[in-house]
């Protein structure tokens, strides 16, 4: 379902050009569980951002569900992203003034879903990440692990087929990190295509398919 063909991504930093992705070609099938590992600065995040349609490759072709998404406008991409891709970040990225429930609701607000359905789905989502009793808590009243669970519930609220996680355990202690990984794996078992970037060997090794990136290239 995800097909990258000869993807390059350059960053211009002053005079210098950084080659963050160097001729990446991969195909990821529906329902796969993939881990991405590699040294810091090797291009992992850039790869995930390209897949998430947050970043555009400098060259190459990207087919998502057999549709070419390289030549789309920002707003078209926003819509594709909203419906197909969930994203979990290392730093949670929840909106501090909104409660857990409101944060989870946000993608549905942007998608224009009716209030009644939103409330139902938020309640279900909270239950599925085991945060029923934290619905009206604000981010500053929640622990890191809880915040990441809010972020996962938010990523899954539009029922995307793809879930991308950029070092989701990077800011968590090992116990809550493990809980998060188990939660993500549970979603994968329900058929969601899961891609996790991690520094942690033990986390990375749990995936069936392991991709290693060095200097913007896929290492064999």
């Amino acid at each position: 379902m995800i097909q990258l063909e000869n993807i390059h991504r350059y960053f211009q930093v002053g005079e210098q050009s950084v080659h963050a992705l160097n001729d990446i070609t991969i195909a990821i099938n529906k329902g796969e569980y993939v881990s991405v590992m590699g040294p810091s600065g090797s291009g992992k995040s850039t790869l995930l951002n390209v897949i998430a349609l947050l970043d555009k490759p400098s060259s190459g072709r990207y087919l998502l569900n057999k549709l070419d998404v390289t030549q789309r406008t920002d707003d078209e991409l926003a819509k594709v992203r909203r419906e197909n891709i969930g994203f979990v970040f290392q730093f949670f990225h929840v909106i501090p003034r909104l409660t857990a429930a409101e944060n989870i609701e946000m993608p549905m607000i942007l998608a224009g879903i009716e209030v009644k359905e939103r409330k139902q789905r938020v309640a279900q989502a909270l239950a599925s990440v085991n945060l029923q009793d934290r619905a009206s808590h604000r981010p500053d009243q929640l622990s890191g692990g809880q915040l990441q669970r809010v972020a996962i519930a938010r990523a899954m609220i539009m029922q995307p087929e793809i879930l991308l996680a950029d070092e989701p355990t990077g800011n968590l202690d090992s116990k809550s990190g493990m809980e998060i990984i188990e939660l993500l794996e549970g979603l994968n078992q329900q058929g969601v295509t899961l891609m996790i970037i991690t520094h942690d060997q033990t986390v990375g090794n749990r995936a069936l398919r392991k991709i290693r990136i060095v200097d913007g290239q896929i290492a064999k």
């Binding site: 998430a52 947050l54 920002d74 707003d75 926003a78 819509k79 992203r81 909203r82 419906e83 994203f87 990225h93 909106i95 946000m106 993608p107 942007l110 998608a111 938010r154 539009m158």
Partner: peptide, 10 residues
Amino acid sequence: GLLKALGATK
């Protein structure tokens, strides 16, 4: 940035 990642249009 987050809103954009969550699918907000311009």
